[in-house]
């Protein structure tokens, strides 16, 4: 018998600090496998966000920097412009990417920065304890929408891929979900494509990954997966939103 599936070199053998059933671990693995398969581990620089994935530098076995909350696309721009032959990607949550970091996200995309963004959308601020995110669904209860998100007070959940799709600098946008093995394999394909777009010097690529937060949703891991399928996917439809590669 041969070992066919295991942690690859780009993922350290460390216990990740995520809650049981959290989607981050799977997404970290998909990014790591992609980097190993493309053979770019030694020329990749990752940017960790402020949010649950803040400790990503402890989990990935390549160069990773911290950035202030919401600023990863600006930091990525700085790195990529100085080192255009390196692979630069950001890994950001919904609060980081489209609340406090909205300006940085939109302008990096619009400039067509040749970077890759892995956008983890779980409709909630995880690390700070379950507050409303820009992507929180209408009616969804969080610690700062105790009566459910009311669009009259808090507006509507933002569809990031659709929002960015009109920008000239954007090359590739796809929305995936880490719900079951089939969708996870699809998510991997999208992430690999996004990195390939960068390697081909074709401009800005972003993969939005719908992911679960059992703890802050108050569900068990299985129910949380069902929540993505029943509530998130209908609002955030899966598939390629833009591809001009």
């Amino acid at each position: 018998m041969k070992k066919i599936l295991f942690k690859t070199e780009a993922l350290k053998d460390t216990v990740m600090s995520y809650c049981p059933g959290c989607g981050h671990g799977v997404i970290h693995r998909l990014v790591a496998e992609t980097i190993d398969e493309l053979g770019i581990r030694e020329k990749t620089i990752g940017i960790a966000p402020v949010g649950c994935a803040v400790f990503a530098y402890d989990y990935w076995n390549f160069d990773v920097t911290e950035a202030a909350h919401g600023r990863p696309p600006a930091v990525a721009t700085g790195i990529k412009r100085v080192l255009p032959d390196r692979v630069v990607f950001t890994y950001q949550g919904d609060g980081d990417l489209i609340a406090i970091g909205t300006a940085e996200t939109i302008h990096a995309a619009n400039r067509g920065e040749n970077i890759t963004v892995i956008f983890v959308n779980n409709c909630v601020y995880g690390m700070t304890g379950g507050q409303m995110a820009p992507t929180t669904l209408i009616g969804q209860k969080t610690t700062t929408t105790p009566f459910g998100r009311d669009e009259k007070i808090a507006g509507y959940p933002i569809r990031v891929c659709e929002l960015l799709s009109s920008l000239g600098g954007v090359t590739y946008l796809e929305r995936v979900a880490v719900t079951d093995a089939k969708n996870i394999i699809k998510a991997k394909r999208a992430i690999k494509k996004a990195f390939q777009v960068q390697l081909d010097k074709k401009g800005f690529s972003l993969v939005e990954v719908l992911s679960s937060c059992p703890t802050d949703w108050g569900l068990n891991p299985q129910e949380a997966i069902e929540y993505i399928e029943k509530n998130m996917i209908p609002y955030f439809p899966l598939g390629v939103v833009k591809d001009k590669s």
Binding site: M1, K2, K3, I4, L5, F6, K7, L11, V15, M16, Y18, P20, G21, C22, G23, H24, G25, V26, H28, R29, D180, A181, I184, I185
Partner: peptide
């Protein structure tokens, strides 16, 4: 069967599959 579904969904990457 070594389908690897368990490996795919494991958030903590604690499963290895042999075939």
């Amino acid at each position: 069967t070594g389908c690897g579904f368990c490996f795919q969904v494991c958030p903590d990457v604690v499963i290895e599959v042999f075939k």
